[in-house]
Design a binder for these strands. Structure first.
Lengths: 240, 240
DNA sequence: AAAATAGTGTCTATGAGACACTATTCC
DNA sequence: GGAATAGTGTCTCATAGACACTATTTT
């Protein structure tokens, strides 16, 4: 007689099978002081103990109903905030990357405002913001250098065809600030006029009043991203 | 005294921990007879036994050194060929999608020429090419309908900014054939002139002689993709 | 007024869309 | 020659790049 699915499931026990190690990790970026920053956390357990790494860890089957919940939990634990922008980047899995054996990580890229989590981060000793250019030279745990580079590259592409990097700025920002952020990401100057045409066309932002003139020169208008705007992509990219 | 990493690893036994089920799956597309086809395989074991699904399965830690090797092996098993184009699409993981428990799948999208694997597929009873539009109406296993739709959508985007869909055609193809393939993917006519300008600009193809005139009208030039060409992306998309 | 920064006007260059035109085949 | 399909010429339109111009602030 044929076994039914219910019978099959009753007998089935996952513990009889060995599955790869499953982790979620996040490359969390922000933009501050004209620099791209990436969030790093110090590994407090073996393996790679003492090295700095992208925040992440094992999925907790009790706490996390999905990969998205798992990464949001990790992010909350390290920054104290929910990231306004998060996107799945890539998964990496092989038998070399973790000394414990065959391991898979699902990697996300998140963007946050520095101010939204600075006090939280400052009060935790094993988490810090590192300038991306400095992080590149570090001996990060596992294959996190390569993963971080892939996230950085994707962010560059986003800068060429979207305004997504705005999520790396404070909730209120000026257009010169956003333009500079994009310029750092694509490592090339952008024409003011081109940039502002795109801002206008995308219609993603609303004015929130003139920025107080704490600097020299004409004060700039501050903006914030409109509520519930969908991810806008331009049909024509900026020159790479 | 501090435990060294070597000591830690010696004591570490993965079998003490329960990890999610890990699978790799592929949405494999081809283009034939003016239609987009997707490769489906019938599930011969519980769960979801008897339903059709995207080809895939568990990573084999003995056979597969990485996710890429795992998916290439699955692909070879179902089609008999190595796909000329394969790309990671997305990973999906939650405690709902598989009745056996918390499960993660790393999904790839592959493009193959129908002719390269037709005889192989025809000789295997649990594998078949299905027209995408028909597959959409099927009750596929797990969350494979949603995954297939996501793969289809990504392929549409590729059609707007690249010539990648050419990998879904036979090795030698004509420009009208490729244009039609792109038109099906974006579900919209493309101007001949725009299309051909892009082909010329991308410089991805080489002529391989006039196509024998088995049809009415002027014979068209056949092309093939040049060896070792990098993934070309246009800075300006076609209108969606 | 000069310096600095914000923001606009306008020209050029590129490339997609539109569409009429020519070219080559079969009947 | 007519029908069908392949392929080109050329105009318009949208938008990025370039860059000079105006606007508003501090000193």
């Amino acid at each position: 007689m044929q076994e039914t699915e219910a019978e099959f499931l009753k007998k089935y026990d996952r513990r009889e099978y060995l599955a790869p190690l499953m982790t979620v990790d996040a490359a969390i970026f922000t933009f501050h002081g004209g620099k791209l920053l990436v969030l790093l956390t110090e590994r407090c357990e073996h393996p790679e103990k003492g090295k700095w790494a992208l925040p992440g860890g094992f999925v907790d089957e009790e706490k996390d109903a999905s990969l998205e919940e798992a990464i949001q939990r990790k992010l909350q634990e390290k920054t104290g905030v929910k990231a306004p922008y998060i996107e799945q980047l890539i998964s990496v899995g092989n038998n070399q990357r973790d000394a414990r054996g065959w391991s898979v990580t699902v990697v996300y890229t998140a963007l946050v405002a520095l101010q939204s989590c600075q006090s939280f981060v400052d009060n935790v000793s094993d988490v810090r913001w590192e300038m991306y250019e400095e992080a590149l030279k570090m001996d990060l745990a596992f294959d996190h250098i390569e993963i971080m580079k892939a996230a950085r590259e994707r962010l560059k592409q986003k800068a060429l065809y979207s305004m997504v990097p705005a999520y790396a700025l404070p909730e209120e920002f000026t257009l010169p600030e956003l333009q500079h952020c994009l310029e750092v990401l694509i490592d090339k100057p952008i024409q003011k006029k081109s940039f502002r045409r795109r801002v206008e066309q995308a219609d993603l932002m609303e004015e929130v009043g003139l920025r107080s003139a704490d600097k020299k020169g004409r004060p700039s208008m501050a903006y914030r991203l409109k509520e519930g705007v969908k991810d806008f992509t331009f049909i024509r990219n900026l020159d790479a």
